[in-house]
Simulated assay, not measured.
Amino acid sequence: MGEILERTIRCSEANAAEFQVLVNGWSKLKALVRSLRALDLFPGLRCLQVTLAGARAWVDAGVLAAINPGGGDEDRP
């Protein structure tokens, strides 16, 4: 088994479109974001970050790696 890497990626202008795809494609995350925004606890994607942990190839794929790692919401880490 290879080395496990970890990388935290914050939403920025450069990757905002990828974060939008991530949130909109992950129903549980989308519901959480909406709930927090309704309570005025989450000002927007600029405050979102993801931490990827796994094999180098997966972590190097960045936000796109978390968009659909293996199927539906149940398969997400």
Rank of each mutant, 00 (worst) to 15 (best):
M1Y: 12
M1S: 12
M1G: 15
G2Q: 14
G2Y: 12
G2A: 13
G2P: 11
E3R: 10
E3V: 09
E3N: 12
I4P: 09
I4F: 06
I4G: 04
L5W: 08
L5T: 05
L5Q: 14
E6R: 11
E6V: 07
E6K: 15
T8F: 05
I9T: 00
I9A: 02
C11E: 08
S12R: 00
E13F: 07
E13L: 11
N15T: 11
A17D: 03
E18Q: 15
L22K: 02
V23Y: 08
N24I: 06
G25T: 06
G25H: 02
S27A: 09
K28F: 04
L29M: 10
L29Q: 05
K30S: 05
A31Y: 02
R34Y: 14
R34V: 03
S35E: 04
L39D: 10
L39F: 06
L39W: 02
D40Q: 12
D40P: 01
L41V: 07
L41H: 01
L41T: 03
P43M: 08
P43H: 06
P43R: 02
P43S: 11
G44N: 09
G44T: 00
G44C: 12
G44W: 03
L45P: 01
Q49N: 15
Q49E: 13
V50P: 00
V50A: 01
T51H: 06
T51K: 15
T51W: 03
L52E: 00
A53N: 05
G54N: 04
R56E: 13
A57G: 15
A57I: 14
A57L: 05
A57R: 15
W58E: 04
D60Q: 06
D60N: 05
D60M: 07
D60R: 13
A61N: 04
G62N: 05
V63Q: 03
V63H: 00
V63C: 02
L64K: 15
L64T: 13
A65G: 00
A66T: 01
A66H: 03
I67L: 04
I67H: 03
P69L: 10
G71P: 11
G72V: 08
D73E: 14
D73I: 01
D73M: 11
D73A: 04
E74M: 14
E74D: 10
D75N: 15
R76G: 08
R76M: 14
P77D: 01
